[in-house]
Computed example of a mutant assay.
Amino acid sequence: MKDENQSSTELKIFEAAREIFQSKGLEGARMQEIADKAEINKSMLHYYYRSKEKLFEKVYQLSIIKLIPQIASLLNEEIPLEQKLQNFIEKYLELIKHNPDIPLFVLHEMNKNPGRMKSFMLNEIGKKVQPFLNQIREEREKGNTVDLPAEQIMANIMSLLIFPFIGRPVFQVIFEMSEEDYESFIEERQKWLPDFIVQMVIKQ
């Protein structure tokens, strides 16, 4: 029973910390806020994690480092470009819909801790993206894609995928969206965005 209670407490801490770190970053988060969110006292939080930095590293390792390479690996499937685009966009949107603060978290960390994020991005994403960029270049040479460099095509795709999550506060203000309205907005994008991006990249 003690082990079960300990596991339950650790899970509550992890989930509370992940939510707060993803929305506020390392610098903006407070241990008291995490303790309150996990419904424990601050002393117990420090019993499990002696510092905010230790807790952040745990969240960073179990959440961000696992999820982002999972997304990047979708680009390495050995399938035709059109099908790959469709699969990648659908799976990406599904993953991010359940972790909507991750793009903003990554952006925040790139500004606050550029060395750590640069190394991670290079090793876990940069190398995995290269085969996809090469596939776009090959298809462009065959005349099967729009006449743009692979890097520009990739930037266009990522802008359409990421910005609605990074720009969530802006959208909610200018479109007068509640939380429910925003969720409906994202679900609507999930329906048409894969086909839209395929049509944007593949020459019809």
Score class of each variant (00 low, 15 high):
Asp3Pro: 01
Glu4Arg: 08
Ser8Gln: 14
Ser8Pro: 00
Glu10Arg: 10
Leu11Asp: 11
Phe14Met: 13
Glu15Ser: 12
Glu15Asn: 13
Ala16His: 05
Phe21Gln: 08
Ser23Arg: 11
Leu26Lys: 03
Glu27Trp: 08
Gly28Phe: 02
Gly28Gln: 07
Arg30Cys: 10
Arg30Val: 06
Arg30Lys: 15
Met31Arg: 05
Met31Glu: 11
Glu33Leu: 12
Ile34Lys: 04
Ala35Asn: 01
Lys37Met: 10
Lys37Gly: 03
Asn41His: 10
Met44Thr: 15
Leu45Gly: 04
His46Leu: 15
His46Ala: 09
Tyr47His: 13
Tyr47Asn: 09
Tyr48Met: 12
Lys52Ser: 04
Glu53Thr: 05
Lys58Tyr: 10
Tyr60Leu: 14
Ile65Met: 15
Lys66Met: 07
Ile68Ala: 07
Ile68Phe: 13
Gln70Asn: 03
Gln70Ser: 15
Leu75Lys: 03
Asn76Tyr: 03
Glu77Ala: 14
Glu77Thr: 05
Glu77Met: 13
Ile79Thr: 04
Glu82Lys: 11
Leu85Lys: 02
Phe88Lys: 01
Glu90His: 11
Glu90Phe: 09
Lys91Pro: 01
Tyr92Trp: 14
Leu93Lys: 00
Lys97Pro: 00
His98Ser: 11
Pro100Ser: 09
Phe105Gln: 04
Phe105Lys: 03
Val106Lys: 00
His108Leu: 14
Pro114Gln: 05
Gly115Ala: 11
Gly115Val: 11
Arg116Cys: 02
Met117Pro: 01
Asn123His: 11
Asn123Gly: 08
Asn123Arg: 10
Gly126Glu: 05
Gly126Leu: 11
Gln130Pro: 04
Arg137Trp: 03
Glu139His: 10
Glu139Asn: 12
Glu139Phe: 12
Glu141Arg: 09
Gly143Arg: 00
Asn144Ser: 06
Val146Thr: 10
Pro149Met: 01
Gln152Pro: 04
Met154Tyr: 15
Leu160Gly: 15
Leu161Met: 01
Phe163Cys: 10
Pro164Gly: 02
Phe165Trp: 09
Ile166Trp: 07
Gly167Leu: 15
Arg168Pro: 03
Arg168Val: 01
Gln172His: 04
Gln172Pro: 00
Val173Cys: 10
Phe175His: 08
Glu176Lys: 09
Glu176Cys: 06
Met177Cys: 02
Glu179Ile: 01
Glu180Lys: 14
Phe185His: 03
Phe185Leu: 05
Arg189Asn: 10
Leu193Gln: 02
Leu193Arg: 00
Pro194Gln: 01
Pro194Leu: 04
Pro194Val: 05
Asp195Trp: 03
Phe196Glu: 11
Phe196Ser: 07
Val198Pro: 05
Met200Tyr: 13
Lys203Ala: 06
